[in-house]
Design a protein around this nucleic acid. Structure first.
Lengths: 116, 116
DNA sequence: CAGGATCCTGTAGGATACTG
DNA sequence: CAGTATCCTACAGGATCCTG
């Protein structure tokens, strides 16, 4: 009985893990979330803050993230047009994951350097 | 000066984040690490513990993870042959990330359910 | 500045069958 | 049980140029 409970919980945890991987999968979603949560609001600003990303990928991901209510897009129709992206509360729920991953990346870098 | 420091640190953090994404990228690495850290040792056991994975993907990932010292593979040449996988200390450094992602997945599920 | 439009490619990943 | 071997393809992602 205790074992059955243990097994069922593990199954739930794998699924939770897989759900999360599905949602934040790919190379760009987390870096973009991180950038916007760090206060970057403008398209080019976000773009420049993420090494390697192209306008095409950033554009695509931002659109998808707006649909999924991860970010809010506001247009100020002056000329030239001004567009601002903001994080939503939902967006911030990824904070712990991002922090854990930044930590790991830093430790990993130390580890690699010590090897040489 | 303070700002320059801030900016530089943010750049480092993005890179750390991107490094981590690179290392654990794809659908399967984290679930496999999780499974092995949970005590699953045998190939079929690991396979059954991860919904959706195929023998091909599990085989490939295990091989790569062994090369990268994430796991240890031991063969007991009785017949039928017995093979056991174990997590290394390095493997366990992903613990925080996995826990954060499991947490997020569980919360996300609640959130989805409340919507209906 | 904020993107859209096109074109292109590698490879992650799936399906299926087979072996010692 | 513990994998290999093939075959296949969708799509993530890159490169480049263009527009209001």
């Amino acid at each position: 009985m205790a074992e059955a409970t243990l097994i069922r919980n593990q199954a739930e945890e794998v699924k939770a893990l897989q759900d999360t991987i599905y949602v934040i999968g790919g190379k760009w979603k987390l870096p973009i979330i991180n950038s916007i949560c760090n206060g970057n609001k403008r398209f080019r600003q976000i773009e420049r803050s993420i090494p390697g990303i192209t306008t095409r990928m950033l554009s695509r991901e931002l659109k998808e993230m707006e649909m999924n209510k991860l970010i809010k897009r506001t247009v100020y129709p002056d000329s030239p047009v001004l567009v601002e992206y903001e994080s939503t509360p939902y967006c911030k729920t990824f904070g712990n994951i991002i922090l854990a991953m930044i930590d790991w990346g830093k430790e990993h870098k130390k580890y690699i350097q010590e090897e040489n």
